[in-house]
Design a protein around this nucleic acid. Sequence first.
DNA 1: TGTGTCACG
DNA 2: ACGTACGTGACACAC
Length: 874
Amino acid sequence: MTKKKIVLLDGNSLAYRAFFALPLLTNEKGVHTNAVYGFTMMLETILANEKPTHVIVAWDAGKTTFRHSTYTEYKGGRQKTPPELSEQFPYIRKLIEAFGITQYELDLYEADDIIGTLSKECNDAEAEVVIISGDKDLTQLANDQTTVCITRKGITDLEKYTPAHIEEKYGIAPLQIIDMKGLMGDASDNIPGVPGIGEKTALKLLKEYGSVEAVYESIDQITAKKMKENLVNNKEQAFMSKELATIEVHAPITVSLNDLDFVGRNEEEVIQLYKELQFKSLLEKMDVSVEVQPLEEIAVHTVEEITSEMLTDTMSVHVEIDGDNYLSEDILGIGLSNDTDTYFITTELATSSDLFKSWIADHATRKYVSDSKSAYAAIARLGMELNGAEFDLMLAAYIVNPSFSTNEVSEIARSFGYHGVESDEAVYGKGAKRTVPASEQLANHTARKAHAVWELYPVVTKQLEDNEQRDLFHDLELPLAKILGKMEVTGVKTDVDVLKTIGEQLSERLAVIEKTIYEMAGETFNINSPKQLGVILFEKIGLTPIKKTKTGYSTAADVLEKLASEHEIIQHILLYRQLGKLNSTYIEGLTKEIHEDGKIHTRFQQALTQTGRLSSINPNLQNIPIRLEEGRKIRAAFIPSETEWIMFAADYSQIELRVLAHISQDEKLIEAFRQGADIHTKTAMDVFGVNEEEVDSNMRRAAKAVNFGIVYGISDYGLSQSLNITRKEAGEFIDTYLASFPGVKQYMDTSIIDAKQKGYVTTLLKRRRYLPDITSSNFNLRGFAERTAMNTPIQGTAADIIKQAMIDMDARLEKENMQARMLLQVHDELIFEAPIEELEKLKEIVPEVMEQTIQLDVPLKVDWNYGKSWYETK
DNA sequence: TGTGTCACG
DNA sequence: ACGTACGTGACACAC
């Protein structure tokens, strides 16, 4: 008889892991399937790799366990299981059943205890045991017969904890893992441990004394005063924590090894389930043909002639584009839909129809659009005007939840439970194989999108209402879409000769620097390759690597700057990088983007960022150089589109700190802004405890960095990096700052608590960002979510404000009957072009509108400038 | 297609 | 202790 091999799986832990490792997927019924899919992948991989004779999946029984009688707060503060995961558990159970695997749960016990008890039984029976979980606690069960595999990254990558591996990794034996948890606690299970003791300290103590008990027996030998004090004061808690972390190996389970025989899966049941879940690739692997689910039947009328009867008062409209660039790609046709009919109109028909032209321009007919900004721009390209857009599916979905950002109607529809649209990839194909399909299929696809918008209007509108986001959507984002569309179509005139001249100068200089670098290196190599550069610097020349990346040595600028004194080549490389960037991204990149009209037409993504900001693509005009003079010259290429016009730029001064003052209600910060103080100097006075005259440039610079840090959700490490000081010094700065601005401290704390409680944070205009990681047991993920909780309301409120200002500004220019045009938004600044005659008026109204757009408890301040090019607006 | 780097607010 | 500052997009390289 072959030796028995038993695999014990921790069901809850692996289901969670699968859920969070994979993006949300749904089948056609709208049931989420990502956790089931991940779990399936894990099962298949494990069974194939381990070839077990016996398998079991253990589940946690319920909320209350025997550990709660020891400590009522055990596993406290955990976020509830997301409903998207809860609904998947029945499927995971069905799946396990179809695989012919026993599953077991036991009242008052956790999966850990079932696994512990069974592994003990198997050990006694001298069988080989493999435990699979995402929870490192289980590693305490490792021994010569038992390997504990913990999910590492993704879903099928497992780290194998054998006693040898644990010894190598932590320097302790498996059972000492329990002592380690006793000392350091476990945030994910809310096990307290001893304050001030983390992994490093816990391991140090255990290597010296061996166990929690031994540590306390030798407590007098411990010299570190603070640590000893913590240990003494929290003795009971330490022992309790150890008890909580100990896996029960004598649980009263009613299964035994003999019940766990694994004979293989029931192919028919598996296929049935995979079909229900639409696991196409897995079915294909089993050689089962997958029939495509027919879409819901919709009668699509391909219109021959547009009649007034078909154009009703309220309709959904979808303009289909060949690709995502609606400013340049072909307009393939238009879909229309309402309660009774769905139509497809070719572009030619639409443009030749006066009926359609007047209907689409009519403010009185309501249109529900899939992406109104795209529609505004595309309709404008057809020589018509779109008015009366009352709903925008893409924007509405983004407002409801910005993490759901896609411009594909099919994806948005699916996430709201509507499955009547195929993906663009299925219709057009992918990559090089992409083609526009035959007219019938194109008509169908386009019309289906229009129908989806119609069907989803009430669904998404309801969610906006529930979230109290109707105003944000209807009064801010929707009108903004129209304005952005106008800005994109207008474009920015670009002087190609300026770019060319700068480019030529750059090329010459680059050639010289390149030569110098090769001479210094003693060989030619690709300076743009971090890999090759790393070899030259750290192996050939022998400089000391300061930082490593996943793939090798880091050659990032901050690293190279630290090495600049070591070797002359560094400064040349830095300069080469800087100039090379200008040349490739800005000179060559921008030149390629100049259209026939001599303008660059960027597109603003309005439904992308997690904070509510815009982004700019094809090209990005929100990151044109300014900080270094050499790069700043690029801005001279951006000029007015008409002669005798000027560029006019206005930016908010310190908008994020003003927003912070407002939402934190910190009295000192509010007062500083009301007095019109230089905020960095004021911060320096408080942090360094000096008066205004004593603040030198270094102090102000440090204060500025602290202010940045505060806005970003401060960490001592981050601040230490930006100021090049030690973490300790940075930490002291932060403490002093927060002591001196208690309102800010209060804000930081409450925004995190708030995010934990509600699962999301909000901006002034009720924009939301969900932060599921805020309760993660992973320090990195949680820390990131916490900083985001602090930063997003600030950055997002600033975005709300400038968006409102753009709407007000557009209205004001209209009202004043001005020719001036808004061209660009760069997060806290607006750029216009205008006839020189309008300059005086602009100087007056731009700051006025921007400053008055939303009233905060501190004044908003706007600086402005003008000139013959963007460069001159400084 | 992912990674590293660097441009902006 | 953990090893990151927040938010973006584009380019070159290496696979």
